[in-house]
Amino acid sequence: MNIIDFVKGIKIGIEPYFFDNVDVEVEQAVKNAISSLEREGAVVETVRIPTLPYAQYAEMITIISEASAIHHQNLVEREEDFGDDVRFLLKLGEIPSAVDYLQA
């Protein structure tokens, strides 16, 4: 099976959110690729995922909470070994509750 046979009739959902805050060159390259797939028979549709803009906040809660858990003992025993920016994020990561973390 060649790529043209595979693409023909396949549905591709595009969420416009992914084009927010993207370099113009990247946006154009992706849109060119989408157009190419359409020319080969793919069916491209706009999809909306209403909660998608909040994903970055959930990701941040997850990342800093996990980093804080890993570095907790070092932060308690050797706080001065961390730069101000990292120390701030690690302390921030200890704020979310288990409920916040799991929902994120």
Rank of each mutant, 00 (worst) to 15 (best):
36 S>N: 15
19 F>A: 04
50 P>L: 02
33 A>G: 13
23 D>K: 11
42 A>W: 04
46 T>D: 08
17 Y>G: 00
77 E>C: 09
73 Q>K: 14
92 L>Y: 09
45 E>Q: 12
45 E>K: 12
89 L>M: 14
94 E>F: 07
85 D>P: 00
62 T>H: 07
66 E>R: 13
87 R>F: 03
54 Y>M: 02
30 V>S: 03
97 S>Q: 07
21 N>Q: 10
28 Q>T: 14
91 K>F: 09
75 L>N: 05
68 S>G: 08
82 F>E: 02
23 D>S: 09
84 D>M: 09
47 V>R: 02
35 S>H: 12
16 P>S: 06
56 Q>N: 08
81 D>P: 00
53 P>E: 03
82 F>L: 05
70 I>C: 05
45 E>I: 11
40 E>N: 11
48 R>Y: 12
47 V>K: 01
55 A>M: 11
84 D>H: 10
90 L>E: 00
58 A>I: 01
62 T>F: 03
16 P>M: 04
17 Y>P: 01
23 D>A: 09
48 R>G: 03
32 N>L: 10
50 P>R: 02
57 Y>K: 07
29 A>Q: 14
37 L>H: 07
82 F>Y: 15
25 E>H: 06
41 G>A: 08
32 N>R: 12
51 T>Q: 11
83 G>N: 11
27 E>F: 01
38 E>D: 06
66 E>Y: 06
24 V>M: 06
86 V>I: 15
48 R>V: 13
42 A>K: 04
87 R>Y: 03
22 V>F: 03
86 V>M: 15
38 E>M: 14
45 E>R: 12
94 E>W: 07
